[in-house]
Amino acid sequence: MEPKPTKDNFEARQILAQISLGIGMPHFQPKTGFSGSPTSSTWHSERAKARSWPKATNASRPSEIKRHKERKEKTRYKNNNMHTVWVRLNAVVFFGLTVLLCLSVLAALSKIGHTRYHQPKIHKLALNQLRSIKNHGGVDRALLSFDLHADMTPAFHWNIKQIFVYVVASYKTDTNPNNKIVLWDRIIEATDPPSAKIIQEENVFVKYGLMDQGAELRGREVQLQLMWDHMPLTGVLYMGEQEKSTTSSFTVPHEYL
C-alpha cells in the first residue's frame, strides 16, 4: 500500500532530494515521487527512513524539531560555504582540461613504433647537374640541381601535422671535419592531397647554395642524404633519414666553373 505523504515527510524528501542532487544521483525524481508507482514511492520513503531523517511521529517533540532545524541550517550553511557555482564551474573546467590532456597523451602514445613498420621509400636522390662553383668573397659556393623520387606517405599518421623534408649535403674539409648543410627543404602538411606526399621531381634547383665556411669546397666528395622531421599535432618530435647505404655522392670539380 502506498503511504499517504504527510507534510513532514514531504519536507524530509525535499531535503533528501537536495542532498542527492548535490552528490549527483540522476535517477532520483522528487517531483514524481507521489504520483509514481507505489514501489518507487515506498523505496523513497524507505530511503528517507534509512537516512534517519526526522519522521512525523517524533518530530512533534520540541527537541526533535529544534535538532531538525539545526540540521537544516547546517546543510544550508554548508552549501553557502562551498560557493557552489564557482566550485562546480571550476570542477567542470578542470575535468575538461584533464580529459583533453589525457586524450593528447593517448594520441601521442598511440603511434609509438609507427616507424618500425612504416618507412618512407626513397627511390632516388642524386645529383643531376652541378651548375656552378664560384668563390664569393672568399668562400666557395656551388649551385646544383638534383633528382628526387620519394614516397613520404608512410610517414604520415593521425598524429602528424606535417613532415619537414630536407636534403642534406655532408662533406669534410681540413678546417671542419664535419659539415652538414641543408640544400633544399619542403613542408608537406597532413592536409595536403595524396599526390603532394609523393615527391617525383627531376632537376630540382637547390633552395640554399652549397656554401662552405672557407674556400675548401673544390675537390671534396659531397654526400646527399634525404632527412625528414615528423611534426606531431601533439607529442614527441622525431627524425627520419634515408639509409646511409642508399645515399649517393659526387665530387666537386677541382677548378671553379
Binding site: T175, N176, P177, N178, N179, K180, I181, V182, Q213
Partner: peptide, 15 residues
C-alpha cells in the same frame, strides 16, 4: 628555429 647548417671543428665545437 631550425638548424640549417652545421660546421663542426676538429675540437668538436660547432658553428
Amino acid at each position: 628555429h631550425r638548424i640549417l647548417k652545421v660546421h663542426e671543428k676538429p675540437d668538436g665545437k660547432v658553428e
